[in-house]
Write a protein that binds this DNA or RNA. Structure first.
Lengths: 204, 204
DNA sequence: ATATAAAATGAACACTGTTTAATTAAACAG
DNA sequence: CTGTTTAATTAAACAGTGTTCATTTTATAT
């Protein structure tokens, strides 16, 4: 009797299917994914794909997840430990945005999808112990406690900064703004506004 | 010989098709739109739809456009002329966001679509003589000229505020935040940050 | 070599957008 | 009222989609 594939064999085939799907995304975007195309590229018939992925959604979700993880890696590999906390945050966000704009399809897919499983992925940022949001939240709390920042809920403020950054990134992607200088100008101005807004000062 | 339909007759039928499409969107979202469903609802066969709309994209684009116009109306109908400029802007943005969150599918469709014809629609906001962005831009220019706001490019700052608002709105839609109080808290905090950041003051 | 179970296939189903030949319907002339 | 003409509508087909499942192929243990 034919032996059941072990987990490693299955993993290899799943990986091959994922790689083929990603290559389709690179050439035709997420809309271009079709089970038949994936199958042909992987050297299978369409039906076989279902032996490795429950359905198309699961396959696509996996591809999105792996793409987004690459974007997140850009944040984590950006250390800049010698700078002030504000500059650290700024650099991390900029690294994140730069990575997102290099994989716009993936960024869009993960940020816009209201599929529960994918919304959950975005909150990786919120939950991961060293995720950008947590670092940001702690820095803000520190600033408030030391009376440097104005009063406010650090959790809410952190999320607003993150959402604001997302909005600008998304608009730059949608409007196909590619010029590195323009991108930098927009991002710097946004952080200037937001961080300046955090300072504790009376309004004139 | 059968007379050609006049423009009014065609308009009426187009309108009927649009109404049917919108009713599908309301029940199943934009993904639910299919020419066959639209045709059946409108009392036609699929082929006939193509007499009134070049293709599905054109039909969908028209539906998106009309939906977004409704969102924009909310901004325009929000007068609040007795308040300060900052409060006017704040109120307009809040009206816009509230309208967008009541028609999330349409807002999402218009803001996320990189289809040239639809990106053009979003710049209605930029171009319309009394669009939110222009008002914002003028107010910012005034603040800078009167030495009240810090130095900066009003066009860029206006776009950043708009993009930041979009980001927060989109995240609240995606994360299905429905509580009116929470929505208000997030929006107010965002404007506090951004407008406070605009003030001309030395950083401590 | 053969039996057995797992993997892979191929065909089918129900759907999609779109095109086009054929049909139906309406308005005019005689 | 009867053709004729022409526009509106339809029905059928095409190529594509995701998915399922009976059938076939394949690899292994006996």
């Amino acid at each position: 009797m034919r032996k059941k594939m072990d987990d490693e064999q299955r993993r290899v085939i799943r990986e091959k299917i994922l790689v083929c799907t990603k290559s389709i995304v690179e050439e035709e975007g997420f809309e271009g994914i079709s089970i038949r195309k994936v199958a042909e590229l992987a050297g299978y018939t369409p039906g076989s794909i279902y032996q490795y992925f429950e359905n198309k959604d699961v396959l696509v979700r996996e591809v999105i997840k792996e793409g987004y993880e690459k974007i997140l890696e850009a944040v984590l590999s950006e250390t800049g430990h010698s700078l002030t906390i504000e500059k650290q945050i700024r650099q991390k966000f900029k690294a994140y945005t730069r990575a997102a704009m290099e994989m716009p399809d993936y960024y869009k897919a993960v940020m816009m999808n209201d599929d529960k499983a994918i919304v959950g992925m975005t909150s990786v940022l919120d939950n991961a112990s060293n995720g950008a949001i947590i670092i940001l939240e702690k820095a803000i709390k520190k600033g408030i406690d030391s009376n440097e920042f104005k009063e406010g809920n650090p959790k809410i403020i952190a999320r607003i900064i993150w959402a604001s950054n997302f909005g600008l990134t998304m608009r730059m992607i949608t409007e196909k703004i590619n010029d590195e200088e323009t991108i930098n100008a927009f991002m710097d101005e946004q952080f200037d506004l937001l961080f300046n807004g955090l300072q504790k000062k009376e309004r004139t």
